[in-house]
Computed example of a mutant assay.
Amino acid sequence: MWFKNVQIFQLKDTENLDTNELVSKIPDFPLKECGSQEEHSFGWLPLIRNSEQWTLAGDRCLLFRAGKEEKVLPAAVVREELEAKVSEIELVEGRKVGRKEKQDMKDELVFTLRPRAFSKRSDIWGYIDLKANILVLNSTNAGMTELLFKHLQTTLGSFPMTPLQAQVSPTSIMTDWLIKNDVPASLETGDECEIQDSSEDKATIRFKSLEPLSEDVTQHLQQGMSVKNVALRWTDKVSFVLHDDLTLRKVKFDDTLKDAAFNDSQGGGLADMDANFALMSLTLRELFDSLSLWFEISSNNE
Rank of each mutant, 00 (worst) to 15 (best):
Arg49Pro: 03
Cys34Arg: 00
Ala261His: 07
Leu156Pro: 08
Pro115Asp: 03
Ser209Glu: 13
Leu62Asp: 01
Gly190Arg: 05
Asp123Asn: 08
Ser36Lys: 14
Pro163Met: 05
Thr171Leu: 10
Leu148Val: 07
Leu47Asn: 02
Phe240Cys: 06
Glu88Lys: 09
Thr162Phe: 09
Arg99Phe: 15
Ser198Gly: 15
Lys252Trp: 04
Phe207Ala: 14
Met273Val: 08
Met161Lys: 03
Ala231Ser: 13
Lys100Glu: 14
Lys208Pro: 02
Phe42Asp: 00
Asn276Lys: 12
Gly58Glu: 02
Asp201Gly: 01
Leu291Ala: 10
Gln53Glu: 12
Phe3Lys: 01
Val6Asn: 01
Pro184Arg: 11
Gly269Phe: 10
Lys32Leu: 14
Asp123Arg: 13
Leu293Asn: 15
Arg249Gln: 13
Ile128Val: 09
Ala185Arg: 13
Ser299Met: 09
Leu148Cys: 11
Leu291Pro: 03
Glu69His: 09
Asn301Met: 15
Arg206Gln: 10
Leu246Asn: 01
His40Val: 01
Lys228Tyr: 03
Asp104Asn: 15
Asp18Gly: 04
Val78Ala: 11
Arg116Leu: 07
Ala66Asp: 06
Glu81Tyr: 10
Thr162Met: 10
Val241Arg: 07
Ser158Asn: 12
Leu31Phe: 12
Gly58Tyr: 00
Val78Phe: 14
Glu200Cys: 08
Phe149Met: 05
Ala278Arg: 06
Pro74Arg: 05
Asn5Ser: 03
Leu31Ile: 12
Pro27Ala: 00
His151Gly: 04
Glu101Thr: 13
Ile134Arg: 04
Leu293Ser: 15
Ser226Asn: 03
Ile8Gln: 06
Phe29Gly: 01
Phe207Thr: 08
Phe277His: 05
Lys96Leu: 15
Lys237Tyr: 08
Val217Gln: 03
Ala261Phe: 01
Arg60Asp: 15
Gln7Pro: 05
Ile134Met: 04
Leu164Gly: 06
Ala76Trp: 11
Arg249Gly: 04
Pro184Glu: 08
Gly35Asp: 03
Pro30Thr: 00
Arg60Lys: 13
Thr145Leu: 12
Gln10Gly: 06
Ser122Trp: 13
Asp259Asn: 08
Lys208Phe: 15
Ala142Val: 12
Gly94Asp: 09
Met174Thr: 10
Trp54Asn: 01
Pro184Ile: 11
Lys100Ala: 13
Phe295Gly: 02
Pro46Leu: 03
Pro30Tyr: 00
Ser239Ile: 02
Ser226Leu: 14
Cys34Pro: 00
Lys85Tyr: 03
His151Asp: 04
Ala185Cys: 11
Asn20Trp: 10
Asp272Val: 01
Val97Cys: 06
Val168Glu: 09
Gln53Thr: 10
Tyr127Gln: 05
Lys4Ser: 09
Gly269Asn: 05
Leu63Asn: 05
Phe29Trp: 00
Ser186His: 09
Ile134Phe: 02
Phe29His: 07
Arg49Leu: 13
Asp59Met: 01
Pro212Ala: 07
Gly35Val: 07
Ile48Trp: 05
Gln266Cys: 02
Val92Ile: 14
Thr218Pro: 00
Leu213Arg: 06
Gly269Trp: 01
Ile173Trp: 07
Ser169Pro: 02
Ser158Thr: 14
Glu215Met: 11
Phe253Gly: 09
Thr14Cys: 09
Pro170Gly: 11
Ile89Phe: 07
Glu93Met: 12
Gly98Glu: 08
Ser51Val: 04
Gly157Pro: 04
